[in-house]
């Protein structure tokens, strides 16, 4: 199945490619991956006064995963954290006309957005109001 024009466009001209320093206090980082395809996606948001002023991504994966994260960074800029939380993978898949076998790439992007917001809130516990407990509850290795 060929990629849609929009996927190719993001793949060839990825928006907001790069990284922020992850330990700066106004940065939230979401790192996620899909074992089935070995894709790794890092999505970061820079937040000022509850609003996302910049976003960057770095994705190692297929064209759909790159396009999904590239599009996500575009959509995130200018949104409040609450607005950003409402972005759904179905919207990304629809915008990029992803075929069913590539829907999981858009799920990765949604997961990355949520993790980035969660990460930001955890380091900014005071401003968000909810005293989030860091809950990366994976089994101990």
């Amino acid at each position: 199945m060929p990629y849609s024009d929009k996927v190719l466009e993001h793949y060839n001209n990825p928006r907001n490619l790069g990284s922020f320093k992850k330990d700066e206090s106004n940065i939230g980082t979401g790192l996620t991956g899909a074992p089935e395809c070995g894709d790794v996606m890092k999505l970061q948001i820079q937040v000022e006064n509850g609003r996302i002023v910049d976003a960057k991504f770095k994705t190692f994966g297929c064209g759909s995963a790159i396009a999904s994260s590239s599009l996500a960074t575009e959509w995130l800029k200018g949104k409040t954290l609450e607005e950003a939380e409402t972005i759904r993978n179905t919207q990304i898949a629809e915008e990029l006309s992803l075929p069913p076998v590539k829907i999981h790439c858009s799920v990765l992007a949604e997961d990355a957005i949520k993790l980035a917001i969660k990460d930001y809130r955890e380091r900014h516990g005071s401003s968000a109001g909810s005293p989030d407990v860091p809950a990366e509850s994976t089994a101990s290795s």
Binding site: G33, A34, P35, E36, K58, F60, A139
Partner: peptide
């Protein structure tokens, strides 16, 4: 696809 978890710190290492 039902359980994507990896060991802590693993994705960072992969990146």
């Amino acid at each position: 696809s039902e359980d994507k978890r990896t060991p802590p710190g693993f994705l960072d290492e992969m990146l």
